[in-house]
Nucleic acid binder design. Sequence first.
DNA 1: CATGAATGAGGATTCATTCAT
DNA 2: AATGAATGAATCCTCATTCAT
Lengths: 234, 234, 234, 234
Amino acid sequence: MPEARTVKRRTKSEDSAKADQASTSSSERPRLRDAERTSKAILAAATKEFAERGYGGARVDAIAERAKINKRMLYHYFGGKDALYVAVLEGSYIAIRSAEARLDLSHRSPADGMRELVVFTWQYFLDHPEFLGILSTENMHKARFLKRSARIFELHSPLVSEISGLLDRGAAAGDFRPDCDPVKIYMSIAALGSFFLTNRWTLSTIFRRNLSDKAEIDAWGEHIVDVIFAYLRP
Amino acid sequence: MPEARTVKRRTKSEDSAKADQASTSSSERPRLRDAERTSKAILAAATKEFAERGYGGARVDAIAERAKINKRMLYHYFGGKDALYVAVLEGSYIAIRSAEARLDLSHRSPADGMRELVVFTWQYFLDHPEFLGILSTENMHKARFLKRSARIFELHSPLVSEISGLLDRGAAAGDFRPDCDPVKIYMSIAALGSFFLTNRWTLSTIFRRNLSDKAEIDAWGEHIVDVIFAYLRP
Amino acid sequence: MPEARTVKRRTKSEDSAKADQASTSSSERPRLRDAERTSKAILAAATKEFAERGYGGARVDAIAERAKINKRMLYHYFGGKDALYVAVLEGSYIAIRSAEARLDLSHRSPADGMRELVVFTWQYFLDHPEFLGILSTENMHKARFLKRSARIFELHSPLVSEISGLLDRGAAAGDFRPDCDPVKIYMSIAALGSFFLTNRWTLSTIFRRNLSDKAEIDAWGEHIVDVIFAYLRP
Amino acid sequence: MPEARTVKRRTKSEDSAKADQASTSSSERPRLRDAERTSKAILAAATKEFAERGYGGARVDAIAERAKINKRMLYHYFGGKDALYVAVLEGSYIAIRSAEARLDLSHRSPADGMRELVVFTWQYFLDHPEFLGILSTENMHKARFLKRSARIFELHSPLVSEISGLLDRGAAAGDFRPDCDPVKIYMSIAALGSFFLTNRWTLSTIFRRNLSDKAEIDAWGEHIVDVIFAYLRP
DNA sequence: CATGAATGAGGATTCATTCAT
DNA sequence: AATGAATGAATCCTCATTCAT
């Protein structure tokens, strides 16, 4: 009952990447007393664990073991399983939106920009299976944890604006049909990509067709482009 | 879907059971064919519980309570959590495929048949949220349990044939583009429907738009039809 | 299922084996499947543990061990440490008030009745050190748990009435001073008895005088009577 | 009461220390004699924490936070939780005995002196709830820690002598009954005061009467005087 | 003197499953 | 057929204390 908990979050400095580099290059020392490194290791391990097993299935012990840290540290840095999960969730969204932001779609032709967005999204999903796993878990909980995050909406408005710009320019140029809803477009792209990857296990079984094969994956990537462009066709 | 269960344990004459009960039920309990009733109640309860909480999150106690049966019965009829989950999984697939089979798409025009399939699928997903929940859970486990089920492929080949027929007739009539993969078409339909419903919780949060509103849901249903028909357009 | 747990706990087989031996060899049958017995054993064990160590210091494991039951049962019957503590608390009050109720003070002379009450209280405190321990703990928590108990006041009004009757009859007979507050009288009796017993450990140390000696204890019992009667003297 | 600590670590001239600090504190930290200040802060914080939560319930982290010091300092100055607790315990006794020593009862009439002692004790208990809390905790542990303290008896003999003197003078003057045991008298005073204050939480609940009200508290103070003087009456 | 990271040994609670009736 | 008691192995979390800087 005497909850004098002092959940402190790390102030991550800009040199983090640099520090990581340094640590990995320095011949695998145990590197004790490195708050940032520990904190990151926990977050990375937790992301994997939560993505693979879901919130309920994830084990705090397993996260600690994956991160090669003492379990106690996890509580020290994040306060508990819940808070760690929220950190993972936010981190996952920030990561994809940050990568997206680097696309700079506005200096391309609408068609090229759209293709880039679709391809990027598909590739990101492929490269970051944890992201889809986290989303799946979070939705099973009806976004219970995500709702706690205040800044999540701000994180996404640039994306909508960007797509909106593409659609407007495409419509003006006669490349795209007019009056498309940018959110619907994004959701369609995400739906086609996400569904294939997250559901390929049951789909492979029921259709007796190994959807994890490179050929199948590549074909589906093209299929998404086809579907989206067919829909956008004026 | 529980009614479609084929593997029944203990299929002794139901009448005799009824007779047995007749004496005891004279007081207050309206127990008719307890064995089957109990078994069905367990399956229905388990389907909800597994869908809502995932395999790991589901609680045997909770299932027993939902089913209003003694927990021991669950072990009696199904053997354990694993086996019960497999029964739920199979039952879920059998249910949707059975409903689909009742569509009789082959006697309609290709366009009408396709529209019917899309609308049916969307409506089925809407009406049976447990189905999507079960799939989500099963995929998180990489279809580990589904693979155990021998007859699951046979269950799905009629669906593929049916769509194949539609596509062929549509292509022949010049309504659809030629050489469409029926599995890809089905997966696209399912992707657009499933993604919206299972992911609407996070999507509503990040886009600050309540996707559980009837208007949004209806609009998305039409969107799926639009997308699929745009893609099929020759 | 996903539980490919690697973190294993040390399986201490020796203690359990020893415990098993003890229970079976001591001619008392293990007495399985006896809900009431188990429940009572837990309550008795918990009363001792909470009294000796306080709420925070009490160990659920220790209670289970004292009661010779599986720890899980404790949760089955009482729900948790909190609820078990509340049960102990209520049980303690019910026990003393029930014993008091058997005194039947109203058919004695006021002086005899009062003496009987004082002696009984002192003796009860002596015989039931757990009661004082529980009270001490509960007061350290500012009666946080007791406040939850609805029926605790009703339990005590008979006591107040009884003392009130004694005081009135004594005042009428000229034995006692008039206008005594029955609650103050009871509190004085309890104070003198309780303080000696609960604080005798520090008192023995600071005054270098073993207050746990029978002679000291007996003398204090008489002292309480003296003090109370001196106060009641008209 | 920490200010009453006689055993001071590092008692160097305070002025010089202040001067020393003046130069260093020029930046931001107002550190005056950090060693002593820190040590006192820890002791004060620990006293509160132990009194409120008991030994087992007290948290080293909480003490560090209350004292606004680094947890490590606590180990530096006191060695550990046990030793800190003992320091708190001794400090508490020293504080009350020191205050008592300032009463100078021997130059008053026996009745006045006794009244003064009773009133002082009651007021001290009221003003220093931590003292009672510490005693309560220590007694729950059967004075395990207090026994370690060598000088605790010497601390109390003056008190006994003082009361003894009062009783003798009172008996000689015919104000008090003869042959009173000074320890019993002191224990009676303490019992009535301590019991009311420490047990008022449960008492308020069972008698449905708010004993923390000023009126009730004042009344009880008078009641103690009444009881003690009634008992002393020859 | 001071700091905050790190840790191992518990501590309460929960869970799927089996046993006795 | 049905029930509820019983259980051991986890599972999340906490704590006093030590270590490296």
